[in-house]
Simulated assay, not measured.
Amino acid sequence: MTAMPASSENSHLIGQQGGRKSLNTPALVLEKAAMLRNIERMAAFASEKGVSLRPHAKTHKSVDIATLQLEAGAKGICCAKLGEAEALAAAGPIPNILITSPVVSAPAIARLAKIHGETEALMVVADHPGNVSNLARAFGEDAPLGILIDIDPGIHRTGVASPDAALALAREIARQPSLRYRGVQFYCGLHQHIKSYAERRAAIIERTGYLRGIVDQLADAGFVPEIISGGGTGTHEIDAELGLFTELQVGSYVFMDNEYGECELFGDAENFEAALFVDARIVSCNTPGMATVDAGFKALSTDGGTPVVTDGAPDGAGFIFMGDEHGGLLAADHEFEHGAAVTLQVPHCDPTVNLHDVYHVVDGDTVVDIWPVTARGRSR
């Protein structure tokens, strides 16, 4: 595993039984055994269903976790941004990276050309002929860049907007000797968090029908996709059942945050295990039934609701954000202990991870390692 950052103020706790309770907080905490079970479970699922895994590293931004996923059988990884790919490839090596957002600006394309020369089997998505032309000028026939056509699933964020546009882009890519058409990407991000399994399944069946029509049109024109990449933690079981994707871009399964914890991910099975937490500490408790902890907006993402208190407070205790540095615990008639440790399950894992420098990897209450968040802040 990667050497921990020398500046980590909690490194002296590694190996100390019960050291988790002494962490300098707020601290991002990873329960390793639960994470490994999640990785193994998803790998076994993919093997059974005959589909490949390309886990999304935007979730964890960690060369250590990406390596574990590859060792478990993943064919490669996804990165949302070029900067993530650069960081993970430099710390790895991590081969077979797909960058799932278009790389458009001239400086970014120059960086893409550099990492392409240093990384095995790099691919990127495109959704515009102008981008394809600019990419083609930056690469050579001796080492063509792999391209997936990004297809808009209906949210109008990125992706070609029609079957005809997909076909036109495939023809444009094929005309460029420095590029190699590899297939398509189709990521239904908004569908991942539909709470009802039945409603989510119905929505994905409809969207997959749309994608199937595009794939058929491409194939009829001689552009059979080698790769059909997409799906996610929320839809992976349904995606595998429908049998169109060749690989799944699952991400949050490795940690399970509150957003996914509230969804029926499976028709007849338990969800993945929660493995990612922020440990905090009570710094004030002068108001009856209320305490203040040292974790606020700077320690926890806010776009997925509020964290769930899993330890250090009574069952059912609530959490409220109280500013940049603080959060509040609410439990009527409870007398909180000043200085006590509190564990919070994160609302949304991806942006929460991006707020921290390191993972404190634990086995029970023992800190067993400290891993860097390798691609923290690499949003360009």
Rank of each mutant, 00 (worst) to 15 (best):
M4S: 14
A6D: 13
S8G: 04
G15D: 05
Q16E: 15
Q16H: 12
Q16C: 13
T25W: 03
T25I: 11
P26A: 13
V29T: 12
A33F: 05
A34C: 09
R37G: 00
I39W: 01
E40I: 06
M42H: 08
M42L: 15
F45K: 06
S47M: 06
P55R: 04
P55A: 07
K58G: 00
S62N: 02
V63H: 01
V63F: 00
T67P: 00
L68D: 09
C78S: 10
C78L: 08
A80I: 04
A90L: 08
A91Q: 06
P93N: 11
I94M: 04
P95C: 07
S101A: 14
A108Q: 07
A110I: 12
A110Q: 08
I115N: 00
T119P: 02
L122P: 02
V124L: 01
D127I: 09
P129W: 04
R137M: 09
F139E: 10
G140Y: 06
P144L: 08
P144T: 12
L145E: 03
L148G: 06
I149E: 00
I151S: 05
I151T: 04
D152P: 12
H156I: 04
T158C: 02
S162D: 02
D164P: 05
A168K: 12
L169F: 06
A170R: 00
A170L: 02
A170M: 02
R171N: 13
E172K: 14
A174L: 07
R175C: 14
R175A: 15
S178F: 01
R180N: 10
R180Q: 13
Y181R: 07
Y181N: 10
Y181D: 09
V184K: 09
G189W: 00
H193D: 13
Y197G: 05
A198S: 10
E199G: 08
I204W: 00
I204T: 03
R212H: 05
I214L: 07
I214Q: 04
D216I: 08
D220H: 10
I228K: 07
I228G: 03
G230N: 04
G231R: 03
G232R: 03
T233A: 09
T233V: 10
G234N: 03
G234H: 00
H236L: 15
H236Q: 14
H236V: 15
A240G: 05
L242E: 06
G243R: 01
F245N: 11
F245C: 11
T246P: 07
L248M: 08
Q249M: 13
S252I: 05
Y253R: 09
V254K: 02
V254T: 14
N258S: 09
N258I: 14
E259K: 02
C263H: 01
L265R: 04
A269H: 11
A275I: 06
F277Y: 14
I282R: 07
I282V: 15
V283E: 13
P288I: 09
T292W: 09
T292K: 12
V293Y: 05
A295M: 08
S301H: 05
G304N: 04
A313L: 07
D315M: 12
G316A: 02
A317Q: 03
F321V: 06
M322R: 15
L329F: 11
A331I: 02
E335H: 12
F336G: 12
F336A: 08
H338V: 13
T343E: 11
D350T: 15
D363T: 12
D365Y: 02
T366I: 04
V368D: 02
I370L: 01
W371T: 10
V373G: 02
A375M: 05
R376D: 10
R378C: 12
S379N: 13
